[in-house]
Amino acid sequence: MTADKTAFPTRRAAAERNRDKILAAARAAFADGDTGISMAEVARRAGVGMATLYRNFPGRRELLEALYADEVDAICEAAVIEDGQSPGAALITWLRLQFDFISHKRLIVSELLEHTGGDGPASRRAQALDAGRPLLTAAQQAGEVRDDVTLEQVFDLIVAIAKIHGTPDYLEPIIQVMLDGLVAGR
Score class of each variant (00 low, 15 high):
Y68A: 14
L112S: 08
T93Q: 13
A74F: 14
R12L: 15
G47W: 11
P87K: 05
R55H: 11
E71A: 14
V72W: 06
G59C: 14
L91K: 04
E82F: 04
G185L: 07
A126W: 04
A15K: 04
P121S: 03
E16Q: 14
L63Q: 05
Y170L: 12
G132M: 03
R186F: 06
I102W: 02
T137A: 06
L136C: 01
G118T: 10
K105T: 11
L53N: 01
Q140K: 03
R45E: 00
G120Y: 15
I158H: 07
M39I: 02
A79L: 13
A26W: 05
K21P: 01
A131N: 04
S123G: 01
I81N: 01
G59P: 12
F30H: 04
M39P: 01
A128T: 01
G181E: 04
P9E: 12
A89M: 12
D32I: 07
V145D: 01
Q153C: 00
I174C: 08
T2H: 15
E114N: 11
P9M: 12
I174V: 14
W94D: 03
H165R: 08
Q176S: 07
R60L: 08
D148C: 09
S123V: 07
A122R: 13
F8N: 12
Q127C: 09
P173G: 03
A69M: 11
G166K: 03
L151Y: 09
F99M: 00
R96P: 05
A28H: 08
D34P: 06
R19C: 12
A28L: 14
I175W: 00
L67C: 03
A26Y: 00
A40D: 12
S86P: 08
A15Y: 11
D156Y: 10
T10L: 15
